[in-house]
Structure formats: structure tokens, C-alpha cells
């Protein structure tokens, strides 16, 4: 294993895919965020906590520009983080992923991780725009969300171990087992404790765009890491060519 090459391509692919995620958010999620924060502002004006003055809007616009720029930076950081996990799992599982080139393997793994670490947890605890969420419950919600992701992820690893031990014609039982397991967890885990106070068309539109943007990330990281792995072959440090 060319360790430095391995680390470099994993971190670069994560950072690039995360930056793409941040840019995608700016394009398709940001309008919903602006709309939701606009509702928050109206609530502040109505409650008297803030005054609707030109000075307010100057400060607000500068603050939001800073946050929007931060979104791309946060995308790069989050992408590097998730990309590191993706790189670990890919390196450990590459030899058991379906036969084919690296792109096929990375897309397969990205699909599995997208489904089990993002989409299924999202169905239980979907993303919410600003105006939705009680600050008093943020720790509870964070614990619930992270717990569900961890349970789903470790459940996937567990049922993969079962999958390996099953005969070819009974491997479907591992998929059925995971479905039953995560379905049970889905029902048993407490719901998000907060009520949704924002208009549902805003919330639903935000959630759809959130899923699209996160999916863009997973497609990007599969494409970039698969391409870089194929080009640099970090797992072929000492090729022993026998004739």
C-alpha cells in the first residue's frame, strides 16, 4: 500500500466532493434557507427583539454573505470528513465489492453508504430549515440523529457478515434481515420532538433540495475517488509481475 498516495487521494477526493456539495447547496438549497430566515426576521420584528431598519439589513446582509461563504468551507470540511470514512471503508472492502473497475466499485459503495448512512436516517429524522427546531432540544435531536446513523451503519456491517456466510441462493435473507432490523429501529426510535411551525411547502422543498445536494456529494466522491484510485493505484505498491 502506497500510504501517502492513499491518504492524499482520499483527502483530496473528500475535499473536492465536499466543495461541490457546498456549491450545490448555494445553488439549490440556499433560496429555501433565505426564505426561512426571512420568516425568522419577521418574527423578530413582530416580537420587538429587532427593528426593521436599514442598519439591520446592512448587518444582516453582511452576516448572511459570511454564512454563505462559510457553507462552501463547511462543505470542504464535511466532505473531507465523510470522504475519510469512505476511503477507510473502500480500502477495506474493495476486494469484496462487485467485479469491475474502480468506478464501478466506488459507485457501489457510495450507493450503499448513501442509503444506509444518509437516506434511511433522513427518512426518520429529515433535515429542517431555520425556524424549525427548539434550541432546548438540539442536544437530544443530535443524539437521536447520530445514534440512528450509527445503528444503521453498524447494522449494515453486521448483516454484511451474515451475507458472506450465506449460500448464493439464500443471500437475499441478509437484505431482508437488514430491512427488518432497520424497520424495527425506525419504529422504536423516538420521533423528532419539535413541531414544524414553518409552511410545509417551504419545509418539503427544502428537504427535497437537501437530498439532491447530498446525493450530488455521494456521486461526486464516488467519481473522484474511483478515478484517482484507478490512476494512482495506491494498493499496488509492490507489483510482482510473474511471467
Amino acid at each position: 500500500m502506497k500510504t501517502i498516495i492513499f491518504l492524499a487521494i482520499v483527502l483530496v477526493s473528500g475535499a473536492l466532493a465536499g466543495t461541490i456539495h457546498g456549491i450545490a447547496n448555494l445553488a439549490i438549497v440556499e433560496p429555501y434557507l433565505d426564505q426561512a430566515i426571512g420568516i425568522e426576521n419577521q418574527n423578530l420584528f413582530a416580537s420587538g427583539e429587532e427593528e426593521d431598519t436599514p442598519r439591520f439589513w446592512v448587518e444582516y446582509d453582511a452576516y448572511r454573505d459570511w454564512q454563505k461563504g462559510g457553507q462552501v468551507l463547511a462543505g470542504a470540511i464535511l466532505g473531507t470528513s465523510i470522504g475519510a470514512l469512505f476511503g477507510i471503508v473502500y480500502a477495506l472492502s474493495r476486494h469484496v465489492l462487485p467485479q469491475g473497475n474502480d468506478l464501478k466499485k466506488t459507485f457501489t459503495l457510495a450507493g450503499v453508504m448513501w442509503l444506509t448512512l444518509f437516506f434511511i436516517p433522513f427518512l426518520k429524522y429529515p433535515a429542517n430549515p431555520p425556524t424549525v427546531g427548539d434550541p432546548e432540544t438540539v442536544v437530544l435531536r443530535a443524539i437521536l440523529y447520530l445514534s440512528f446513523i450509527a445503528i444503521s451503519g453498524f447494522g449494515t456491517v453486521g448483516f454484511y457478515q451474515i451475507y458472506k456466510r450465506l449460500r448464493q441462493n439464500t443471500k437475499i435473507l441478509a437484505f431482508a434481515g437488514y430491512a427488518a432490523f432497520i424497520g424495527t429501529v425506525f419504529v422504536l426510535m423516538p420521533p423528532n420532538p419539535d413541531e414544524i411551525s414553518a409552511p410545509m411547502d417551504l419545509v418539503n422543498g427544502f428537504r427535497v433540495m437537501s437530498v439532491v445536494a447530498v446525493s450530488v456529494f455521494w456521486v461526486s466522491i464516488a467519481m473522484i475517488l474511483g478515478g484517482l484510485w484507478h490512476k494512482f493505484r495506491p494498493d499496488a505498491e509492490n507489483p510482482d509481475v510473474r511471467n
Binding site: V29, Q67, G70, Y145, V214
Partner: peptide, 16 residues
């Protein structure tokens, strides 16, 4: 928190 605020919401993390 403020710098990552928009990404937190967009990526599905509980924010506030």
C-alpha cells in the same frame, strides 16, 4: 456554529 450554519441545515444536522 454560525460559519457552518447553512451546511448544518442543508446536510441534515440538527442546528437550533
Amino acid at each position: 456554529h454560525e460559519l457552518t450554519h447553512d451546511m448544518r441545515h442543508a446536510a441534515g444536522f440538527p442546528c437550533h
